[in-house]
């Protein structure tokens, strides 16, 4: 088993890069900033093609190792803990942003957008927990 190739974190990192690149290419982003993201797009695209090619060319045994890394119970536990830890951090960040945008910058429109995103986020979380508690 080659440890370097079996890393579920790399996929998450690529997804994050893709999300950043999409966000920075939106119509309301200044042109100079969008232009800066072209190298980022190219790097991510090259990485995606390389990873896809590399994984297809791996021997059968190493492909099984990759599949195993995705379903490994420790990796899944780490992913769940990371998600839950970040949700709690995000809660306070959103509250802080709501307060800063509303009170310091007096942008109630943005503040209430943050507020509703937070509310939907938490209702979504509660709903998902309720549904899973019924299932298990």
């Amino acid at each position: 088993m080659n440890k370097g190739r079996v890393n579920p974190l790399f996929d998450d990192l690529l997804n994050t890069g893709l999300l950043v690149a999409i966000g920075l290419n939106s119509s309301f982003v200044p042109d100079w900033l969008s232009a800066c993201t072209i190298p980022l797009w190219l790097i991510i695209l090259a990485a995606l093609i390389f990873v896809r090619w590399k994984r297809k060319s791996l021997p059968r045994e190493e492909q099984q190792d990759l599949k195993r890394a995705e379903t490994d119970e420790r990796n899944l536990m780490i992913r769940e803990k990371a998600a839950w830890m970040w949700i709690r951090v995000e809660y306070w960040l959103m509250l802080g942003m709501f307060w800063a945008v509303g009170v310091i910058f007096h942008r109630s429109d943005i503040a209430y957008t943050i507020y509703w995103i937070s509310i939907i986020h938490w209702f979504g979380l509660v709903a998902a927990r309720w549904w899973l508690s019924r299932k298990y």
Binding site: M1, K3, V6, D65, R68, A69, D72, E73, R74, N75, M77
Partner: peptide, 26 residues
């Protein structure tokens, strides 16, 4: 051992060092 029980080597390392507790299935 990792191959035999279908987990990664890193999981075996964590189990041996006591940093991670196995599920009942594992």
């Amino acid at each position: 051992l990792a191959d035999g029980v279908d987990v990664t080597r890193q999981t075996i390392i964590s189990l041996e060092s006591g940093r991670y507790n196995a599920s009942l299935l594992l």
